[in-house]
Amino acid sequence: MSDYQLGQRVAYTEHLIRKTRVGEGFHAETIKVWTSDRYSFPEGGKTDGGEGIIIGKRILANGENHYNGYDEPIAFKAKERFTAYLVAYDLRRKPVYVRPEHIQTLPVGANATGLDHTPSTTTEGVA
C-alpha cells in the first residue's frame, strides 16, 4: 500500500534522519541527505523501527548547498526528491519520517505482535 490515511496505525522497520556532510575548504559544497544509516553514531547500523500513527505526508529532498559568490546567498539544490510519511510514535517526542517501503499497516487496536492494547473495563483488583 503506498497511500496511507491520516490516523492510520502502522509499524515501520526504520526511519529517516537528516545528515550533513561538509566538504573541504572555505567555500566547499555541503551535502545534505535523509538516510536511515547511522554512520555518525558509535553503534552504527540502521535506525530503529517501531509503531505509530500516520500524521502527515511530505516530499523530502537530498542535495547540496552551493556557495554562489560573495554577493549572493548560499542556495540549496535538490538532487533527488522522494515521498516520506510523518509518523507519531509518542506524545512527547517529535515524529519521524518514514519511506513508504518501510511501512506496514496494523489493524485497529493491535500492535506488531498482534496483541490487542485496548484498555480493560474490568475493575478486578481495584481498591
Rank of each mutant, 00 (worst) to 15 (best):
M1L: 13
L6Q: 07
L6G: 02
G7D: 09
G7F: 03
Q8K: 11
Q8S: 14
R9A: 08
Y12M: 11
Y12P: 05
E14G: 08
E14V: 06
H15D: 07
H15T: 05
H15A: 06
L16F: 03
G23A: 15
E24K: 09
E24G: 05
E24M: 11
E24F: 15
A28I: 03
A28F: 10
T30W: 06
I31Y: 01
K32N: 00
K32G: 00
Y39T: 12
S40E: 09
F41K: 15
E43M: 09
G45T: 09
T47F: 00
G49N: 04
E51A: 05
I54E: 01
I54W: 01
G56C: 06
K57N: 11
K57H: 14
I59N: 01
L60C: 07
L60I: 07
E64H: 04
H66G: 07
N68T: 07
Y70K: 11
E72C: 13
P73M: 15
P73F: 14
I74D: 11
A75V: 03
A75P: 00
A78G: 14
A78K: 15
T83L: 08
T83M: 08
A84M: 11
Y85W: 12
A88W: 02
L91F: 02
R92A: 04
R93K: 03
K94I: 15
V96G: 02
V96C: 10
V98H: 03
R99F: 04
P100R: 10
E101P: 10
Q104C: 11
L106R: 03
L106T: 10
L106P: 09
N111D: 12
A112H: 01
G114I: 14
D116W: 00
D116C: 06
T118C: 13
S120L: 07
S120I: 11
T121H: 07
T122D: 03
T122N: 07
T123G: 13
G125F: 05
A127E: 13
